[in-house]
Amino acid sequence: MATSPSSRRIERLFRSHPSQDGDGVHIQRIHCFDGELDPFLMLDELGSDRPDDYIGGFPPHPHRGIQTLTYIVHGGITHEDHLGHSSTIQAGDAQWMHTGRGIVHSEMPLTDSQGLHGFQMWLNLPAREKMSAARYRDVRSDEMPRLKNEKAELIALGGSWSTPEGESVSGPLDALAGSGGVAHVRLEADGQLTLTAPSETLAVYVFEGALQIEGESVAAGQLARLSPGESLVLASPTGAQCLLLAGTPHREPIAHYGPFVMNSAQEIEQALRDYRNGTFTD
Protein backbone atom coordinates (compact mmCIF):
# COMPACT_ATOMS: atom_id res chain seq x y z
CA MET A 1 0.00 0.00 0.00
CA ALA A 2 1.43 3.37 -0.99
CA THR A 3 2.15 5.80 1.78
CA SER A 4 0.26 9.08 1.69
CA PRO A 5 2.42 12.12 2.48
CA SER A 6 -0.18 13.14 5.07
CA SER A 7 -0.25 9.79 6.90
CA ARG A 8 1.17 9.81 10.39
CA ARG A 9 4.33 7.78 10.92
CA ILE A 10 6.23 6.61 13.98
CA GLU A 11 8.62 9.30 15.23
CA ARG A 12 9.72 7.59 18.43
CA LEU A 13 9.04 4.36 20.33
CA PHE A 14 8.84 4.29 24.12
CA ARG A 15 8.98 0.91 25.87
CA SER A 16 7.16 0.39 29.16
CA HIS A 17 9.28 -0.73 32.10
CA PRO A 18 8.37 -2.69 35.24
CA SER A 19 7.78 -0.61 38.36
CA GLN A 20 5.88 -0.66 41.64
CA ASP A 21 3.62 1.94 43.21
CA GLY A 22 1.18 2.22 46.08
CA ASP A 23 1.36 -0.77 48.41
CA GLY A 24 3.64 -2.82 46.16
CA VAL A 25 1.38 -2.87 43.09
CA HIS A 26 3.23 -4.24 40.06
CA ILE A 27 2.82 -2.07 36.96
CA GLN A 28 4.32 -1.44 33.54
CA ARG A 29 5.07 2.29 33.25
CA ILE A 30 5.86 4.87 30.60
CA HIS A 31 6.68 8.27 32.05
CA CYS A 32 7.53 11.40 30.13
CA PHE A 33 7.93 14.58 32.15
CA ASP A 34 9.99 16.40 29.51
CA GLY A 35 7.05 17.39 27.33
CA GLU A 36 7.52 14.88 24.51
CA LEU A 37 3.97 13.56 24.97
CA ASP A 38 2.48 16.84 26.23
CA PRO A 39 -0.24 17.04 27.60
CA PHE A 40 0.26 13.40 28.69
CA LEU A 41 2.78 12.73 31.44
CA MET A 42 2.52 9.05 32.30
CA LEU A 43 0.78 5.81 31.41
CA ASP A 44 0.63 2.87 33.83
CA GLU A 45 -0.59 -0.57 32.80
CA LEU A 46 -1.83 -2.83 35.60
CA GLY A 47 -2.18 -6.41 34.46
CA SER A 48 -1.89 -9.64 36.40
CA ASP A 49 -3.78 -12.81 37.27
CA ARG A 50 -1.79 -13.03 40.54
CA PRO A 51 -3.58 -11.12 43.33
CA ASP A 52 -0.31 -10.68 45.25
CA ASP A 53 0.84 -8.37 42.44
CA TYR A 54 -1.85 -5.77 43.15
CA ILE A 55 -3.97 -6.63 46.19
CA GLY A 56 -2.34 -3.94 48.37
CA GLY A 57 -3.74 -1.26 46.10
CA PHE A 58 -3.06 2.44 46.46
CA PRO A 59 -3.78 3.65 50.03
CA PRO A 60 -4.72 7.33 50.59
CA HIS A 61 -2.30 9.71 48.86
CA PRO A 62 -2.38 13.29 47.51
CA HIS A 63 -2.20 14.81 44.03
CA ARG A 64 -1.92 18.36 42.74
CA GLY A 65 -1.64 19.85 39.25
CA ILE A 66 -2.83 16.93 37.08
CA GLN A 67 -5.77 14.95 35.83
CA THR A 68 -5.90 11.16 36.05
CA LEU A 69 -7.90 8.84 33.83
CA THR A 70 -8.31 5.21 34.88
CA TYR A 71 -9.72 2.66 32.42
CA ILE A 72 -10.48 -0.97 33.24
CA VAL A 73 -10.34 -3.90 30.80
CA HIS A 74 -10.77 -6.70 33.38
CA GLY A 75 -11.43 -6.55 37.11
CA GLY A 76 -12.19 -3.25 38.78
CA ILE A 77 -11.08 -0.33 40.95
CA THR A 78 -12.79 1.28 43.94
CA HIS A 79 -12.11 5.00 44.39
CA GLU A 80 -12.64 7.08 47.55
CA ASP A 81 -11.52 10.67 48.18
CA HIS A 82 -11.63 13.45 50.76
CA LEU A 83 -14.50 15.13 48.87
CA GLY A 84 -16.77 12.21 49.71
CA HIS A 85 -16.77 10.46 46.35
CA SER A 86 -16.96 6.67 46.53
CA SER A 87 -17.31 4.66 43.35
CA THR A 88 -16.39 1.31 41.82
CA ILE A 89 -15.68 0.84 38.13
CA GLN A 90 -15.49 -2.51 36.38
CA ALA A 91 -14.60 -3.87 32.94
CA GLY A 92 -15.13 -1.22 30.28
CA ASP A 93 -15.66 1.65 32.74
CA ALA A 94 -13.49 4.71 33.41
CA GLN A 95 -12.79 7.19 36.22
CA TRP A 96 -11.63 10.78 35.67
CA MET A 97 -10.16 12.97 38.37
CA HIS A 98 -9.24 16.65 38.07
CA THR A 99 -6.96 17.15 41.04
CA GLY A 100 -6.58 20.92 40.73
CA ARG A 101 -5.06 22.42 43.88
CA GLY A 102 -5.38 19.17 45.78
CA ILE A 103 -7.16 15.89 46.31
CA VAL A 104 -6.45 12.96 48.63
CA HIS A 105 -7.79 9.63 47.38
CA SER A 106 -7.33 5.87 47.50
CA GLU A 107 -7.73 3.22 44.81
CA MET A 108 -8.26 -0.42 45.68
CA PRO A 109 -8.11 -3.07 42.92
CA LEU A 110 -10.75 -5.75 42.39
CA THR A 111 -10.51 -8.95 40.39
CA ASP A 112 -12.73 -10.94 38.07
CA SER A 113 -12.32 -14.34 36.41
CA GLN A 114 -9.55 -12.92 34.22
CA GLY A 115 -7.70 -11.13 37.03
CA LEU A 116 -6.98 -7.40 36.81
CA HIS A 117 -6.08 -5.41 33.72
CA GLY A 118 -6.36 -1.66 33.51
CA PHE A 119 -4.61 1.63 32.80
CA GLN A 120 -4.07 4.96 34.46
CA MET A 121 -2.99 8.01 32.48
CA TRP A 122 -1.78 11.34 33.88
CA LEU A 123 -2.52 14.52 31.95
CA ASN A 124 -0.82 17.78 32.86
CA LEU A 125 -3.00 20.73 33.79
CA PRO A 126 -2.15 24.13 32.32
CA ALA A 127 -0.76 26.68 34.78
CA ARG A 128 -4.07 28.56 34.95
CA GLU A 129 -5.88 25.42 36.21
CA LYS A 130 -3.33 23.93 38.60
CA MET A 131 -4.91 25.59 41.64
CA SER A 132 -8.53 25.12 40.52
CA ALA A 133 -11.15 23.17 42.46
CA ALA A 134 -10.88 19.37 42.44
CA ARG A 135 -13.52 17.40 40.50
CA TYR A 136 -14.33 13.75 39.87
CA ARG A 137 -16.61 11.63 37.70
CA ASP A 138 -16.94 8.07 36.50
CA VAL A 139 -18.18 6.89 33.11
CA ARG A 140 -19.78 3.54 32.38
CA SER A 141 -19.02 1.39 29.35
CA ASP A 142 -22.47 1.88 27.83
CA GLU A 143 -21.91 5.66 27.76
CA MET A 144 -18.91 5.31 25.43
CA PRO A 145 -19.75 5.51 21.71
CA ARG A 146 -18.11 3.25 19.16
CA LEU A 147 -16.82 3.35 15.60
CA LYS A 148 -16.89 -0.06 13.91
CA ASN A 149 -16.08 -1.82 10.70
CA GLU A 150 -15.99 -5.52 9.89
CA LYS A 151 -12.72 -6.17 11.73
CA ALA A 152 -12.11 -3.12 13.90
CA GLU A 153 -13.73 -1.25 16.76
CA LEU A 154 -12.88 2.07 18.42
CA ILE A 155 -14.33 2.85 21.86
CA ALA A 156 -14.24 6.60 22.60
CA LEU A 157 -13.55 7.51 26.24
CA GLY A 158 -12.90 11.18 25.49
CA GLY A 159 -12.20 13.46 22.55
CA SER A 160 -13.56 13.33 19.00
CA TRP A 161 -12.66 10.53 16.57
CA SER A 162 -13.66 10.29 12.93
CA THR A 163 -13.03 8.34 9.73
CA PRO A 164 -12.33 9.76 6.26
CA GLU A 165 -15.83 8.54 5.29
CA GLY A 166 -17.39 11.02 7.70
CA GLU A 167 -18.30 8.74 10.61
CA SER A 168 -17.61 10.49 13.91
CA VAL A 169 -18.00 9.90 17.65
CA SER A 170 -17.14 11.96 20.73
CA GLY A 171 -16.34 10.37 24.08
CA PRO A 172 -18.22 11.42 27.22
CA LEU A 173 -15.07 12.71 28.96
CA ASP A 174 -15.15 16.18 27.43
CA ALA A 175 -12.95 18.05 29.91
CA LEU A 176 -9.62 16.26 29.44
CA ALA A 177 -6.68 18.64 29.80
CA GLY A 178 -5.13 19.92 26.58
CA SER A 179 -8.29 19.11 24.58
CA GLY A 180 -7.29 15.52 25.25
CA GLY A 181 -8.73 12.41 23.67
CA VAL A 182 -8.41 8.75 24.68
CA ALA A 183 -9.79 5.73 22.80
CA HIS A 184 -9.52 1.94 23.00
CA VAL A 185 -9.04 0.19 19.64
CA ARG A 186 -9.52 -3.50 18.93
CA LEU A 187 -8.37 -5.02 15.64
CA GLU A 188 -9.10 -8.58 14.58
CA ALA A 189 -6.62 -10.52 12.44
CA ASP A 190 -6.12 -8.64 9.15
CA GLY A 191 -8.11 -5.74 10.58
CA GLN A 192 -7.54 -2.11 9.64
CA LEU A 193 -8.85 1.21 10.90
CA THR A 194 -8.26 4.57 9.23
CA LEU A 195 -8.88 7.77 11.20
CA THR A 196 -8.54 11.45 10.52
CA ALA A 197 -5.90 12.69 12.95
CA PRO A 198 -5.81 16.46 13.45
CA SER A 199 -4.49 16.52 17.04
CA GLU A 200 -0.97 17.85 17.39
CA THR A 201 0.06 15.18 19.91
CA LEU A 202 -0.94 11.65 18.91
CA ALA A 203 0.40 8.43 20.41
CA VAL A 204 -0.51 4.74 20.28
CA TYR A 205 0.10 2.33 23.16
CA VAL A 206 -0.16 -1.35 22.18
CA PHE A 207 -1.10 -3.77 24.95
CA GLU A 208 -2.02 -6.90 23.01
CA GLY A 209 -0.64 -8.30 19.78
CA ALA A 210 1.23 -6.05 17.35
CA LEU A 211 0.26 -3.12 15.15
CA GLN A 212 1.51 -1.94 11.80
CA ILE A 213 1.69 1.83 11.23
CA GLU A 214 2.88 2.74 7.72
CA GLY A 215 4.87 -0.48 7.48
CA GLU A 216 6.52 -0.21 10.90
CA SER A 217 5.64 -2.53 13.77
CA VAL A 218 4.64 -1.59 17.32
CA ALA A 219 4.72 -4.49 19.79
CA ALA A 220 2.79 -4.97 23.02
CA GLY A 221 4.29 -2.80 25.75
CA GLN A 222 5.43 -0.10 23.32
CA LEU A 223 4.08 3.42 22.83
CA ALA A 224 4.58 5.09 19.48
CA ARG A 225 4.66 8.88 19.28
CA LEU A 226 3.51 9.82 15.80
CA SER A 227 4.63 12.45 13.33
CA PRO A 228 2.37 15.29 12.15
CA GLY A 229 -0.18 14.33 9.53
CA GLU A 230 -3.82 14.31 8.54
CA SER A 231 -4.65 10.60 8.84
CA LEU A 232 -3.71 7.50 10.83
CA VAL A 233 -3.86 3.96 9.49
CA LEU A 234 -3.74 1.15 12.04
CA ALA A 235 -3.43 -2.44 10.78
CA SER A 236 -2.67 -5.84 12.28
CA PRO A 237 -2.16 -9.17 10.51
CA THR A 238 -2.64 -11.11 13.76
CA GLY A 239 -4.98 -8.93 15.84
CA ALA A 240 -4.16 -6.26 18.41
CA GLN A 241 -5.51 -3.92 21.06
CA CYS A 242 -4.22 -0.43 21.79
CA LEU A 243 -4.97 2.92 23.40
CA LEU A 244 -4.92 6.13 21.36
CA LEU A 245 -3.83 9.31 23.17
CA ALA A 246 -4.43 12.70 21.53
CA GLY A 247 -4.12 16.30 22.67
CA THR A 248 -2.74 19.80 22.31
CA PRO A 249 0.58 20.57 24.10
CA HIS A 250 0.61 23.23 26.82
CA ARG A 251 4.27 24.06 26.14
CA GLU A 252 4.80 25.15 29.73
CA PRO A 253 7.59 24.29 32.18
CA ILE A 254 7.06 21.00 34.03
CA ALA A 255 8.22 20.49 37.63
CA HIS A 256 7.52 17.02 39.01
CA TYR A 257 7.91 15.47 42.45
CA GLY A 258 6.03 12.27 43.32
CA PRO A 259 2.28 12.93 43.02
CA PHE A 260 2.70 16.67 42.35
CA VAL A 261 3.19 18.28 38.92
CA MET A 262 3.58 22.05 38.83
CA ASN A 263 5.46 24.64 36.76
CA SER A 264 8.36 25.43 39.10
CA ALA A 265 10.39 24.01 41.98
CA GLN A 266 8.97 26.74 44.21
CA GLU A 267 5.42 25.54 43.50
CA ILE A 268 6.44 21.97 44.31
CA GLU A 269 7.89 23.14 47.63
CA GLN A 270 4.63 24.98 48.35
CA ALA A 271 2.63 21.82 47.65
CA LEU A 272 4.79 19.88 50.10
CA ARG A 273 4.35 22.58 52.75
CA ASP A 274 0.60 22.68 52.19
CA TYR A 275 0.34 18.90 52.55
CA ARG A 276 2.43 18.85 55.73
CA ASN A 277 0.59 21.70 57.45
CA GLY A 278 -2.92 20.49 56.61
CA THR A 279 -3.93 23.23 54.13
CA PHE A 280 -3.40 21.14 50.99
CA THR A 281 -7.07 20.77 50.06
CA ASP A 282 -8.37 24.10 51.43
Rank of each mutant, 00 (worst) to 15 (best):
L187H: 13
G278W: 06
H98F: 10
G22I: 10
P228M: 00
G171M: 08
E107F: 08
Q114C: 01
D274R: 14
G247Y: 02
H26C: 09
W161H: 11
K151M: 09
H31K: 15
R186V: 14
H105W: 03
L83Y: 03
H79R: 07
A203R: 06
G100P: 04
H117L: 15
A152W: 07
V104K: 10
L69T: 08
R146V: 15
E269I: 03
A94N: 09
E230T: 03
D21P: 08
K148Y: 03
T279W: 04
V139H: 08
R15T: 15
L232D: 01
E150C: 01
G75W: 04
M144H: 07
L223I: 05
E267M: 13
E80W: 09
R12H: 01
N263S: 12
D34E: 13
I55C: 12
H26N: 13
L244R: 12
A127H: 09
T111P: 00
E167A: 15
E150L: 12
A2Y: 03
P237R: 14
I55N: 03
L232F: 05
L187T: 11
R140P: 01
L176E: 01
V73A: 14
G158S: 07
V73L: 15
S168N: 07
Q28S: 15
D34G: 14
I254Q: 09
V204Y: 02
A203L: 06
G118M: 08
A91V: 06
H117I: 03
L176H: 02
V73E: 14
D142M: 10
L125Q: 02
D81V: 10
R251A: 14
A2M: 08
W161S: 09
L176D: 07
W96V: 07
D138W: 05
S231W: 00
G84F: 06
T163I: 13
L195E: 00
R29Q: 14
A220Y: 07
V204G: 01
H17T: 14
R9P: 00
A265G: 13
A133M: 06
V206N: 07
I72W: 04
A240G: 12
T70S: 15
V25P: 10
H79A: 14
P51L: 12
L13W: 03
S168P: 02
Y257A: 13
H250V: 06
S19R: 15
S48N: 09
G158P: 15
Q28G: 11
I155D: 01
K148D: 10
G75R: 10
S160L: 10
L110K: 15
R64M: 06
D81A: 10
F58T: 13
S7K: 00
H256K: 15
H105R: 08
T99P: 01
L41D: 10
I55H: 13
G215R: 02
S162I: 00
T78P: 06
G247V: 04
T88C: 08
D282K: 12
G118K: 04
S217L: 09
G76M: 12
P62E: 05
L116N: 06
D138Y: 09
R251G: 01
